[in-house]
Nucleic acid binder design. Structure first.
Lengths: 142, 142
DNA sequence: CAATCAGTTCAGTGATTGCTGAACATTCCA
DNA sequence: TGGAATGTTCAGCAATCACTGAACTGATTG
């Protein structure tokens, strides 16, 4: 599934293990062993996962090793990325509209729709995220 | 930007041209020439874009050539795909939860959050899409 | 200080991908 | 029926990518 999202398989394997491992934090060494992967792979993939916002590094006092664990609210994080992409599309369509602004409104229509759609989502996405946060608060109270 | 979405660059180039070309429908030959690409490329990439739902084939009576044009509401289409991915994640987390159901609730928590988040979006996404459709209707009336 | 351990970097590999160009298939018209 | 025009399929190439393993860095401990 991570590959479908355009991420390396190894990133998915690490994330998958961290979803179910006990304890929830695991060292590079443990990851390398259980996943049968090289230290190099673990190093670069954990870096990637941290950058995306799905996991976090967890230094334990008195232990020289780095531990990794799934970041709470990792999933909201993922959709932040998506917001960035939507914004990029909105801006791209604006650049396009600017270039064809002298042409007939009819020929602008395709870009117009692209623009409006992304502008719409740019507004909606944070609201849905907000709703998720509240939805989650309720769950905790139960 | 298409490459960022995990699609081949050529698909993006075709889509980009169809966003601004006049007329809005273009034949394979025209696409191949303006984009300086091989007929084979055009053939496979238009097939891909049709499959994704971003463009459509437009047979003109009396013309042996196939024409392609951007599908109206192409963008909603894209987010249908995303809904499928969300559903897949929701199901995957359910499979996971089933496997660890005998363990402590605490150790299930990571999967639980993954599940709830995707179940939430699975419900929200169609609603937002509905709102987009209505939002668009208003625009037309103006 | 040396020795050890954890982690990073990077050259090298095998596999995959995107694209071309040529061969092939199909449709239409003379 | 031939032949021209249009589109598809596929072998092959170049570029890219994911991953390994080894060399390296840097921190900690005896």
């Amino acid at each position: 599934m991570f590959e479908l999202m355009g991420l390396p398989r190894m990133a998915g394997r690490i994330f998958g293990w961290l979803l179910i491992s006990q304890p929830s934090h695991q060292s590079s060494g443990e990851l390398a062993e259980v996943l049968q992967a090289s230290k190099g792979s673990i190093s670069s993939m954990t870096r990637l996962l941290i950058q995306i916002g799905l996991i976090e590094r967890l230094p334990l006092p008195g232990d020289r090793r780095d531990f990794f664990q799934i970041k709470p609210h990792a999933w909201s994080q993922l959709h932040e990325q998506q917001l960035a992409r939507i914004t990029a599309f909105r801006k791209l369509s604006e650049r396009g509209l600017d270039l064809v602004k002298t042409q007939s409104p009819q020929s602008q229509q395709r870009l117009r729709e692209m623009h409006d759609y992304h502008a719409f989502w740019e507004k909606e996405l944070p609201q849905v995220n907000q709703r998720w946060i509240e939805h989650q608060k309720e769950r905790v109270r139960e």
